[in-house]
Design a protein around this nucleic acid. Structure first.
Lengths: 147, 147
DNA sequence: ACACTAATTATAACAATTATAAATTAATAA
DNA sequence: TTATTAATTTATAATTGTTATAATTAGTGT
C-alpha cells in the first residue's frame, strides 16, 4: 500500500518533469512511511544516516517542490516550524494541545460550508483547512493521576 | 459598538490583573478598529506615530498576554509571520490565495464534526480551526482582464 | 505620595527558512 | 554507453520573525 503510494508519487514527479534524485526518493519514502507529520529538521535528522552530506536546504527545497506538485501539504501551527504531511485521501487532524500529537481522522468533505462561504463572500473556493484541538487519551490519564 | 468592545477588553484585563498601559490600550484599540488581521510588525508600524519609542518586543509581549487572557487569536498561515485577530463572536476566515486578503464570515459552530472526531480519536475536544481558501472577487476580475 | 512590582525599552540572541554560487549528477539523445 | 546539459545538491551566508536579558520606567493599591 505505501509501496504504491511511493510509486504513484514517483510517477507524478516524472510526468511533471521533476528529477528523481536519491534524496527526493528518500524524503518521499520517509514521509509516506511515518505517521508523525515531521518538521523539515526531523526529516533531515532521520535521513542523516543514509545521507551524511545532505544539506538542510535540500530538504526545504524538495518539500517546496513536493508541495508545488501537490504531493505534500504544509501544516503550520502556532509553534515555530512547519510540519509536512504526505497527501493521501482527504483527512483532517486532531491535535493534542498538551503533547502535540497529531492524529488523522476521516470525515466527509465540508462542501456545505464551502458553498455557504462562497455565497456570502463572493470568493471562488479552492480548498479548506480544518483542525480540531483537544487533549489526547494519554495526556488525560496523566492529568488524572496528578490530581 | 467597538467602544464597548474596547471597554469589555479593558475590564477583562482589570479582572485578570493585567496592568493597563498606554501601549496596551493602543494595541487593543487598533486591533478592534482594523479589519485587516495585522501582523505584529504591522501593529508596531501603525503605532509608531503615537509611540515613537515603543519596542517591537512590547508588541509581541502584549499580543501574547492578550492571547493568554483570551482577547486575541493568533492565526498562522503558510507565510512567515502570524496574524492577530481580536476575538469577538465566532467567525471563520476566507482567505484569498492571490492577494492574501482575509474576510470574516459567520457560520454555526461545527459541533457535529467535533463530536465525531472526539468519538473516533478518544480526544477531549477544546476547539477547532477552520479556514477556507479561494480567490477574492477583485483578483477574479484582474485575472479575467489579463486573459 | 510611596513603595512594590510589573511593564517597557534597547539590544542581543535564537531559530526557521531562504538565497547564493560552486560542484555534482540525473535524464536525454547521439 | 557516453557525452551533454540543465537541474540539483551542497556549503555557507544572509534574512527574518520572535524571544530572552537586563536596566529603566511607570501602574496600582496603600
Amino acid at each position: 500500500m505505501s509501496e504504491t503510494h511511493l510509486q504513484d508519487a514517483l510517477d507524478t514527479l516524472k510526468t511533471t518533469g521533476v528529477r528523481i534524485t536519491p534524496q527526493r526518493h528518500a524524503i518521499l519514502e520517509y514521509l509516506i512511511q511515518t505517521m508523525a507529520h515531521p518538521t523539515a529538521d526531523e526529516i533531515y535528522k532521520a535521513l542523516e544516516g543514509k545521507f551524511p552530506n545532505m544539506s538542510v536546504a535540500t530538504v526545504y527545497n524538495n518539500l517546496r517542490v513536493f508541495r508545488e506538485v501537490g504531493l505534500v501539504k504544509e501544516l503550520t501551527f502556532g509553534d515555530a516550524s512547519s510540519r509536512f504531511d504526505f497527501v493521501t485521501n482527504d483527512h483532517y487532524h486532531m491535535i493534542c494541545e498538551c503533547c502535540g500529537t497529531i492524529v488523522d481522522f476521516h470525515y466527509p468533505g465540508l462542501d456545505e460550508i464551502e458553498h455557504f462561504a462562497s455565497q456570502v463572500t463572493g470568493f471562488d473556493v479552492h480548498s479548506h483547512r480544518l483542525e480540531i484541538y483537544g487533549t489526547c487519551p494519554s495526556c488525560k490519564d496523566v492529568s488524572a493521576k496528578v490530581q
